[in-house]
Design a protein around this nucleic acid. Structure first.
Lengths: 353, 353
DNA sequence: TTGTAGGCGTTATCAG
DNA sequence: CTGATAACGCCTACAA
């Protein structure tokens, strides 16, 4: 099933080397040096800081490198310099659609700058998150923490070792990228108020989530401004299941309009309510948050506050890269605008039962 | 802007936190050696192959390591050994829900074995994919290619350098993990046939996609077996948009039942058809493939063939790790069962118009 | 069982 | 501008 005959000769040809050496292992600067007739250190220089070498030898070296199909060993490179050309990204849940955008954005701008991203998942656990971060620390130039669950102090400790960018949360002393919930939530509340709703129910996410607290605050403020009432209800988990479970609470609370901590919750709510023959939005209006993939797949489509996570990911990676170049900018919070996306799950309240 | 005063003394203090210091710069085996009063090489041994060292010194060393909060430098470790404890994962599109499962499964079992995964995206381009693979090659122990777009030969070339596992495609000579479309598709076709459909239209994915070809083949075979007709139609892109665009074709083709290359296509189709006032499934039955997140969010829910991608990811990572331990198992294709998930988008054909 | 001495592939610091 | 030569942190024969 595998090859039988000795590909010996063939191999030798493949690894075209000065003397037919086992060019197997990637060529090194020594090989190049030999081929170009210069000193290895000159090769290193020519390759890393061209300009500090004469044009002649430079071409010579570049040609040799090309011929040998040279590929610098990233580990050897990282050893003396400490720079790994890698950034670490930790998300709480790889399978949570919220993070797809973040992952993608990060990957995108990282690749764009010839950086690799190594990905880890914390599974919503502060402990796992921290150990993942710790493990990563040694092999990356910097870290992006998406919706971190660990304490502020831990994050600051990390940031003392390597540059850290936090997404989706505001940590004092750390540069953060966070969707500016106020704008979108303001739009949402006004939208609801404009449709005659006098009271808004907010379904919160996990207690540990900074974002949840922030969103609730946003809802409350906007409600105050609009002179309508706002109450908070807790959920088990920020998932579709959690949303379904929360449905009864909502009904019991006599809500006519609810804003959920996230789309998953909102979708679960929508499903359960519909299953119980409630008319959406006629009897209850539902607003989600995030505008994840699938938010427009429900019937009616989910009205939601869009948080452009891909932009956040790109922004975060960009900031991190910048921090790697010029150290120690004073940290700041970078806000990304959110906006209301109106679909079918919200409308005028047409009475109960 | 850098430090002014001689950090000499300070540094000394910072390191070796015997006195409760921060232990700033990572400790090395030298530090441990000093603290434990042994030779660095002994430390190395004690840490990597305990058992080749006396219990006494071992404890001594482990304690010292713990105290210094020692963390081996992965790069220094990788240099002499060549092992990186990292596996590379390349997907065509990070934002495509199909891959979420793969990513997650891979990350999961990798982390479980103390491996990191570094992620790259090819953007559907064989060229970008190959360059990504090439770049990665140097920094990983092995590679997982999810739905690769590059040619078989290129993949085999890669596999000659480092172990490679392919997901979602069958490449001769390479260990692959592929959903066994036959079973699920067979169920789907029988399901449709059982509902009176005599002709099935398959909407294909990208030409370059091995999977698309395979699925079409599966549909054709099952149709033959069921004695019904099967025709193939091409799509622009395997996305919701592509699905919407294909709607007219479908109608023109007079299809009563369609099986789409993937769920995205199916959802797009569903949306567009509904927008044109077609009744689903009364006038047209729609079957997707993958059972991505969101497939059950549509109304009616999408009947689809579920491909358990998370399992595939775990399987792939597992196989790769195994290949890393014991080299050169003969490659084989590992099939993962697919199954039909019946939801609301399929049913009896109730006549046209 | 433990210490000695090289080496892994690059970069960086000096001289020349 | 270029060539020696010493790190970088760890591994591994080989010797003691």
């Amino acid at each position: 099933m595998t090859e039988l005959s000795p590909p010996e000769a063939e191999r030798k040809t493949l690894r075209n080397n000065v003397e037919g050496r086992p060019a197997r292992a990637n060529a090194t600067i020594y090989d190049i040096a030999k081929l170009a007739g210069v000193n290895p250190s000159t090769v290193s220089r020519a390759l890393s800081k061209p300009g500090r070498v004469s044009v002649g030898t430079r071409r010579l070296i570049e040609d040799a490198a090309a011929e040998l199909n040279y590929q610098a060993n990233p580990f050897a490179k990282a050893l003396p310099t400490g720079k790994t050309s890698t950034i670490g990204l930790i998300v709480t849940d790889v399978a949570n659609p919220t993070f797809f955008g973040t992952i993608r954005g990060t990957e995108f701008t990282a690749a764009d700058h010839d950086y690799s991203v190594i990905l880890a998942e914390s599974g919503e656990s502060a402990r796992k998150e921290q150990s993942a971060a710790q493990r990563m620390l040694a092999s990356v130039d910097g870290l992006i923490l998406a919706s971190p669950r660990m304490e502020d102090d831990r994050i600051r400790e990390l940031a003392q070792e390597k540059p850290v960018i936090v997404v989706n949360r505001d940590v004092e002393g750390i540069t953060c990228v966070v969707p500016d919930v106020e704008k979108g939530l303001g739009e949402a509340v006004r939208h609801l108020a404009g449709h005659g709703h006098r009271k808004i129910t907010f379904i919160a996410g996990p207690d540990a989530s900074w974002m949840s607290a922030r969103r609730w605050q946003g809802v409350r403020q906007a409600s105050e401004w609009c002179r309508i009432e706002a109450v908070k209800l807790d959920s088990d988990s920020p998932t579709i299941k959690g949303g379904r479970a929360a449905a009864r609470m909502i009904v019991d609370a006599g809500a006519s309009a609810v804003i959920a901590y996230n789309d998953l919750l909102a979708i679960g709510l929508l499903q359960e309510l519909q299953a119980a023959a409630y008319a959406i939005p006629d009897q209850i209006s539902i607003v989600g948050f995030d505008d994840i993939f699938g938010a427009d797949l429900t019937t009616p489509g989910l009205t939601t506050v869009r948080a452009p996570m891909e932009t956040c990911g790109m922004e975060a990676a960009g900031l991190l890269l910048k921090a790697l170049k010029s150290p120690e900018k004073s940290p700041f919070v970078h806000y990304i605008d959110t906006e209301l996306v109106v679909r079918g799950s919200t409308g005028k309240f047409l009475g109960s039962t």
